[in-house]
Design a binder for these strands. Structure first.
Length: 1057
RNA sequence: GGGCCCGUAGCUCAGCUUGGUGGAGCGCCCGGCUGAUAACCGGGAGGUCGGGGGUUCGAAUCCCCCCGGGCCCA
């Protein structure tokens, strides 16, 4: 006959986890789960945001990310969905290249081609990625993440690259693909353009100079500009002024300077000029078209070409009056804003005389070949020698640097491939707004980005990426290839693989002009790679219909609003005209204890390996998952320990329940809660109601992806409701020897609740749930599947939900708490029964609850009787007395103080009553009106004799501290029982072993406890029990003897088996 | 400099949507229990709810400003 299995010992996460891991391998859990779910009607399409495999061990934040995904996917499976669960890795990109450069000792990009060879380099990248992918996969599996690890999507695979090509071709067909000048961040060390998110800002010290630009045709008149980047001056094209600002022409030692009036005082302070006069004031717009001469025109050939543009232009937005002079030197080749303003004035050329490594080109003559930042000094001294430098100093400011190598970037105008997403902005906004964002502010962030939408620059001048599938001929004809087949059609050749350098070997004749077409050398930005995952992870894009595109659910950190969510959206709208996701959950960042970012260099970094090692998988997962999903998480070992402690309690609950169920051969299939319906007690019905409400709560939390609420509710239930409360009621019931229905009803209730709890905790703590399932549930129900992860999610049994009953229980709980507090101050331990507890309340609800559930109330308070009376009867048992606070009265009433004190002492009760009731007491003392306020007195409560009174939520309770002989003897009996139980435990006896007991104690004690001999016998399972003043005459060798002091009495207990 | 998030007990965090006497866990102090036991239970102390202003009879909660931390951008 199947019975409930036993859970023994202490919870040891590592032991549980390693045995469960081995079990899963043995039964091939993933395969079983797949086949279980293959029959499900509904599909759940999830797309894994691919982590970047730049390291071998995932960050705890990544562990959080994957745990969230795992919990949700497991829940979906249990609620019968076919889940698409292919994990992925984002394999391309500069961070991998930089790591490989370090391995190969590469300092400059050109070494890759000149010394290493592109083929070698790509192979090294691939090797690094595979190493890290294998290692990260191992750790994700260690965490219990149940996904298709045998088949992750890797963005570097040829089929994935083809999928990328498909989108670029699609963009071209839509007329969105372009090759044009763009001002981009450029890292001179990596020799590539950087996206905004590949740039970070750090403190850099730069020159700060004021430069005079001679106004044409006006002797000794100058436009004054300020700059921190002298190296951009060779490319100066125009000077910008704010049309609405007021400008001043000032006269300083025979020279006239033009600058914004508002900046004048700051300018004078910095330059140290003091003798000046204002010649003229005018609006900025009057400066428009004013021609000037470049101060270094004789040194820089490029300036010859640019001189035709050397005029003042206007810009409201880009000329700020918070720094500089209000006149801004404009170089469209070195600034986003400058470029824009240039376009407005029809200046399409964006002179950018800086090469890939940040050196000046021949166009700048004198400075050619110099690294731009190093040329600053020369440029400044040349300005000075020409009398055009007004002032020089240095300043520290935040300046963009490459996020990988920390080299200060330069801004360069270069030709880049862009997808003109600005043309589909409205669609982007519309589609983004249709998505469910959790929490909703994620949408606000994205809309803000879309408000300032820029075209998508997809090209990078590097190696390790998706090669752009664009072939051009010398006449500028271009063909965009959509997949390998199309490439074969044009070229007749299949490349070794689709990466550089192999792909670059493929050339073919231009269909239009018959010249040779070669691929453009660029690769795609990595964000392009991950942006197409929504279809590229699933197969060939042209096999998918638009209606099949949006995935049901994705979840990533809040940095991905601008990252992955944004690139997915762009790719979705370009490729299929839709947002490629229906619901997006945003999670927070894992920070260190102090809320700072974790960095290996700061020593505050915690890897998933260390966390698993120290905490265990389930405690780590639960701790991560209990954090409010979208808020940042502060790492804390103490926090993990708290969760660990809760799991200890949960484990012990199972030990408790399973020990007795197993002992009594409890079979849940025969004795179910339905079967025992009529025998369920108050606390049973309460537990069944609570657990069904828990199912409701956890289900809706999961359905709305509030995973943290599910964790917290499950934790609170097992700790607060089951362990702290229900078990207290259950304990005496399970000690009943015979197979009483009262006991079986407790078993049935516990089994029902614990099983449901286990199933619900399974997606969150999969190892622990499995272990307890196998030990506790499976032996009793052998027909259940071999793993808890194959069970269905529990349904809500509304019949068991009883709000009124729950409210009654919470009243009993309040009573118990108040009674415990009263006992405390009376010094009566809980084991000692008391005669009577009186509850004063005006609430009919409370009266009804306590009367109806008298047994429970008496049991939990260990009281012989309970009375409920109207609240105003409290006055019969409590009096308030005021005691004067002499210092307060003295300092306030001075000469009158003595009389006030006397008055308070004399009218202690009246004063106290008024203060309690009205907050003050007024009186006429010595002919003066006096108000006694709470600050003047201490109000003390005096209770009736032998009473301890406590206020509680529903009124007042009074505990009668007088004990009769009956109560005293019961208390003593329980003291004796407890000590015998300790001794049984010491002897290592099994719970149901029978014993013989001899108790030697004083006559008076025997008289007190004698009547309860049978009670003691049954509690301690004694065959024979002797109470005597004498020691036993013969003590056998297997007798355990121990001396105790109970109260004043010396008690010697002998136990033999 | 901008957008968004967070700031509540020593620590970690609920409560805020929809205003009505501020909660939990851990830690601490005191006590109890001992057939879940290197566990468990009860009680207690501990808070200008980041600061300031406003709306309101009433603000942790709604509005504005400021400060600190985070993410994203400039």
């Amino acid at each position: 006959m199947p019975v409930v299995g036993r859970v023994e010992g202490r919870y040891n996460p590592h032991r549980v986890e390693s045995s469960v891991k081995e079990y899963w391998n043995r039964i091939d859990l993933y395969k079983l789960v797949l086949s279980e779910n293959s029959r499900c009607e509904n599909a759940f399409l999830f797309i894994d945001g691919p982590p970047y495999p730049s390291g071998d061990v995932p960050h705890v934040g990544t562990a959080w990310n994957k745990s969230l995904k795992d919990a949700v996917l497991r829940f979906k499976r249990m609620t019968c969905y076919r889940v698409f669960d292919r994990p992925g890795y984002d394999c391309h990109g500069l961070p991998i290249e930089v790591k490989v450069e370090q391995r190969l000792g590469v300092k400059y990009k050109r070494e890759i081609e000149e010394r290493i060879g592109v083929e070698e380099f790509i192979d090294a990248c691939k090797k690094l990625v595979y190493e890290n992918v294998d290692s990260m996969t191992k750790w994700f599996m260690e965490l219990g993440v149940l996904m298709d690890w045998s088949n992750p999507y890797l963005t570097m695979r040829d089929e994935y690259i083809e999928s990328g090509w498909w989108l670029i071709k699609k963009a071209d067909e839509m007329g969105l693909l372009d090759n044009e000048y763009r001002v981009v961040y450029w890292c001179p060390r990596c020799s590539t353009t950087l996206a905004e998110y590949e740039v970070e800002y750090s403190e850099v010290i730069d020159p700060s100079i004021y430069v005079k630009f001679p106004v044409k045709g006006c002797e000794k008149e100058y436009l004054v500009i300020w700059t921190t980047t002298p190296w951009t001056l060779p490319a100066n094209t125009f000077i910008m002024a704010n049309p609405d600002a007021v400008y001043a022409k000032i006269l300083v030692s025979g020279e006239k300077y033009v600058l914004a009036k508002e900046r004048l005082s700051e300018f004078l302070k910095e330059t140290g000029l003091s003798e000046f006069s204002v010649v003229e004031e005018f609006k900025g717009r009057e400066l428009e078209g004013l021609e000037y001469q470049h101060p270094l025109h004789d040194l820089i050939p490029l300036q010859e070409q640019l001189s035709k543009h050397h005029k003042v232009v206007l810009s409201k937005e880009h000329v700020a009056l918070t720094e500089g002079t209000g006149l801004v030197h404009g170089a469209p080749g070195h600034g986003f804003e400058d470029y824009e303003v240039g376009l407005e004035y029809g200046i399409a050329s964006a002179a950018s005389p800086v090469d890939e490594e940040g050196r000046f080109t021949a166009e700048v003559g004198a400075y050619a070949g110099m690294y731009v930042r190093e040329a600053n000094e020369r440029i400044i001294s040349d300005l000075e020698s020409r009398g055009c430098l007004l002032h020089k100093s240095t300043m520290a400011h935040r300046y963009p640097v490459c996020w990988r190598c920390k080299t200060p970037v330069v801004l360069r105008a270069t030709k880049q491939w862009v997808i003109r997403v600005t043309k589909v902005r409205n669609e982007l906004i519309e589609e983004a707004s249709r998505v469910k964002w959790m929490p909703s502010w994620a949408l606000d962030r994205l809309l803000h980005i879309l408000d300032n939408l820029q075209d998508w620059v997809i090209s990078r001048q590097r190696y390790w990426g998706i090669p752009l599938p664009i072939w051009i001929c010398p006449n500028g004809h271009r063909i965009v290839i959509g997949d390998l087949e199309e490439l074969l059609k044009y070229s007749g050749r299949r490349p070794g693989e689709l990466h550089k350098p192999w792909i670059d070997e493929i050339t073919f004749k231009c269909p239009k002009c018959n010249n040779e077409m070669r691929r453009v050398p660029d690769v795609a930005d990595v964000w392009f790679d991950s942006g197409i995952a929504f279809y590229a992870a699933r197969g060939k894009p042209f096999e998918l219909k638009a209606s099949e595109i949006p995935s049901d659910f994705i979840v990533e950190g809040h940095d991905q609003v601008r990252g992955w969510f944004f690139s997915l959206l762009r790719a979705g709208v370009i490729g299929f005209g839709v947002a490629p996701y229906k619901c997006v959950l945003v999670h927070g960042f894992a920070l260190d204890e102090k809320g700072r970012e974790m960095h290996k260099s700061l020593g505050n970094y915690v890897g998933t390996d260390e966390a698993i090692e120290r905490a265990g998988r389930d405690p780590l997962r639960l701790w991560l998952l209990q954090n409010t999903v979208w808020e940042d998480l502060k790492f804390s070992w103490d926090g993990i320990n708290e969760i660990r402690a809760a799991l200890d309690v949960a484990w012990n609950v199972f030990v408790f329940a399973s020990t007795y169920m197993n002992l009594d051969k409890y079979d849940p299939l025969i004795h179910s809660v339905g079967e025992l319906r009529d025998h369920l007690k108050f606390e049973d019905k309460w537990l069944l109601s609570r657990v069904n409400k828990l199912v409701k709560e956890v289900t809706s939390a999961f359905n709305e992806y509030r995973v943290h609420e599910a964790v917290r509710a499950l934790k609170d239930f097992i700790v607060e409701e089951v362990s702290h409360w229900y078990v207290r009621f259950a304990r005496p019931r399970v000690w009943i020897e015979e197979s009483a229905l009262e006991k079986v009803a407790a078993y049935a209730s516990m089994y029902y609740a614990l099983k449901r709890w286990l199933v619900m905790i399974a997606p969150l703590a999969p190892f622990l749930a499995e272990e307890l399932y196998l030990r506790f549930v499976k032996p009793a129900e052998p027909d259940l599947p071999p793993s808890i992860h194959l069970l269905k999610w529990p349904t809500i049994d509304e019949n068991f939900i009883d709000e009124e009953l729950e409210e009654s229980m919470s009243i009993v709980r309040e009573l118990a708490s108040a009674a415990a507090s009263a006992r405390m101050s009376a010094g009566i331990k809980l084991r000692q029964p008391v005669k009577c507890i009186t509850v004063y309340t005006n609430s009919e609800r409370v009266r009804a609850a306590l009367t109806e559930h008298l047994d429970a109330s008496l049991f939990i308070t260990n009281s012989k009787s309970l009375e409920v009376r109207p609240l105003d009867e409290v006055s019969k048992v409590v009096r308030y007395v005021a005691e004067p606070i002499y210092s307060a009265i003295g300092s306030e009433y001075r000469s009158l103080a003595k009389e006030v004190m006397k008055y308070v002492e004399g009218n202690a009760e009246t004063v106290a009553r008024d203060i309690v009731t009205f907050g003050r007491h007024e009186a006429e003392i010595g002919g003066v009106k006096v108000a006694v306020e709470p600050r003047h007195v201490n109000v003390k409560k005096i209770y009736g004799n032998n009473l301890v009174v406590r206020e509680f939520k529903y009124g007042v309770i009074a505990l009668d501290t007088r004990l009769t002989l009956g109560e005293v003897s019961e208390g003593l009996a329980r003291e004796i029982v407890r000590r015998i139980q300790v001794m049984r435990k010491d002897m290592g006896l099994s719970v149901d072993a029978k014993v013989n007991v001899w108790i030697q104690m004083p006559r008076e004690a025997i008289d007190v406890v004698g009547e309860l001999k049978n009670y003691i016998s049954s509690e301690v399972r004694a065959l024979e029990l002797t109470l005597s003043e004498e020691a036993p005459s013969r003590v056998s060798s297997n007798t355990y003897k121990k001396e105790w002091l109970i109260g004043e009495d010396k008690v010697v207990i002998y136990i033999s088996t």
